[in-house]
Write a protein that binds this DNA or RNA. Structure first.
Lengths: 255, 255
DNA sequence: CGCGATCTTGATTCATCTCAAAATGCGTGG
DNA sequence: CCACGCATTTTGAGATGAATCAAGATCGCG
């Protein structure tokens, strides 16, 4: 929950990846050499099991703004995120769209596919994205053989639920400034180790916090003025974590 | 999602219950005779399996306002709701409390117990409550023997996630009036067949919609004036569904 | 270089909060 | 059964945060 946890994009993991990959050669895709292997779904498997996976798993690259899948589409696979950031969003019956949560490297999205349901939300790439497609049948079979996998799946469901509940409690109550500060804190979980984070377009901030584009813009401008954040470019910012945390503490009382 | 689905508290289910219960006698608790047997966790089991359950399952009665469990408590059991309504809530780091979702007859709450985690939220009785306590070890053992149970559990996790996402999209965006109308729609899912629903205290409505007590009171007063609802007593109301739906349709455009 | 999309900024309006007080409901003890 | 007191609800008036409406400014791109 706190920024110091930068394991999501740790340099160590990348190093291990390229190291292992040498044996398989640079082209062949190997699950044993996956940069997110430890956090990902098959983390419980041994090398022998992992070696048999790649035949069934296909990699995919997605451009920012493109959908990995859409709500109500029949769901035949779940996806593990190798690299990049996804937002899960639904459109409300009122017409607006609402971002439900984010997912990053090591996360598994589209769990509902495993139950034969249609997708519950749109999954849209925030940044350039690399994912692995895990067909439902594969997971079904492996789950039957390996009970530990089922337990891992249940943990992931619980984690998703937890995350949704956090968005409900921390990102959709309180005044707009508080919610914006909480969003920055959340984004810092997916940031580079040096503190640079991906900054959503103003309209997307709006869909995350339920504010208008204008308000999102004003909030960002204010926090930049206060030195809580500074732009690298329009889509990336550097956070001053102590100030962010101080601003959050201040925002508790008044709001 | 729509009021006509009143299966949650259908008279049929109750009739089946009392019918089956005759054999076991009125005192002994029998899972085969449970009023929510078909919707509940062990719905997939046959009579023989069900007969062995009661030894491990204890029934519990809870008064309105009392907690079934509290967030961060170690969780050793999940609960099936036999009768009554529960609200799941968390307190935000800002100090407020926020209702995450509701659970009613046939629902399973406290799923996180099965993963050895602490409880993720407070579970508080809205109405007089009857629940069955399902110890973690029981579910673990049965799950190992009966894979269909694991699948059912995953479905429940997904259902909870779905519900949380619905609260995010429909109950925490849009103006207060829209959210209030959506809440009534949601409450109608747990209503009596005749259209009477349980109406939360104004402060609880506030925690569900993220509004103040005063605003909650004004919203209720306005909808009563418009004939969308009328009080039976302070805690129960009768909905005029056609008007409710009409009001929702109108609220889409302007907001 | 120019054009559409996105972002910023300002002025005004409106919804909801805040503060305050009265009304009602509800349990308790006389 | 009534009188009391506390909690909840209702209602009002004023303050305020965010939406809306309306221009500009900047960015990305052909």
């Amino acid at each position: 929950m706190v920024p110091s946890d930068s394991s999501r994009c740790s340099h160590d993991a990348l190093w291990i990846a390229s190291n292992d990959a040498r044996r398989a050669g640079p082209e062949a895709h190997s699950c044993a050499g996956c940069p997110v292997r430890r956090q990902a779904l098959f983390g419980v498997f041994d090398e022998a099991m992992l070696a048999r996976l790649p035949a069934h798993i296909s990699e995919q690259t997605i451009e920012p703004g493109q959908a990995l899948y859409r709500a109500n589409e029949p769901a035949a696979a779940a996806w593990t995120i190798r690299e990049g950031l996804i937002r899960l969003e639904r459109s409300s019956e009122r017409g607006g769209r609402r971002v439900l949560r984010l997912a990053g490297p090591g996360d598994l999205v589209g769990l509902e596919a495993l139950l034969g349901q249609t997708h519950a939300a749109d999954a849209i790439a925030c940044t350039p994205l690399q994912v692995c497609r895990l067909p439902r049948v594969l997971i079904d079979e492996l789950g039957a053989a390996e009970p530990a996998l089922l337990r891992d799946l249940m943990k992931r469901w619980q984690a998703a639920l937890d995350e949704a509940e956090e968005w409900l409690t921390e990102l959709s109550t309180g005044d707009a400034r508080w919610r914006m500060l909480r969003l920055l804190l959340k984004l810092s979980e997916y940031g580079e180790p040096d503190g640079r984070i991906w900054l959503p377009a103003r309209g997307d901030i709006g869909a995350m916090l339920d504010v208008t584009v204008e308000t999102a813009s004003r909030l960002v401008a204010a926090l930049k003025r206060e030195g809580v954040m500074q732009f690298a470019d329009l889509r990336h910012a550097r956070l001053d974590m102590p100030r962010l945390l101080a601003a959050l503490r201040e925002a508790v009382g008044p709001g």
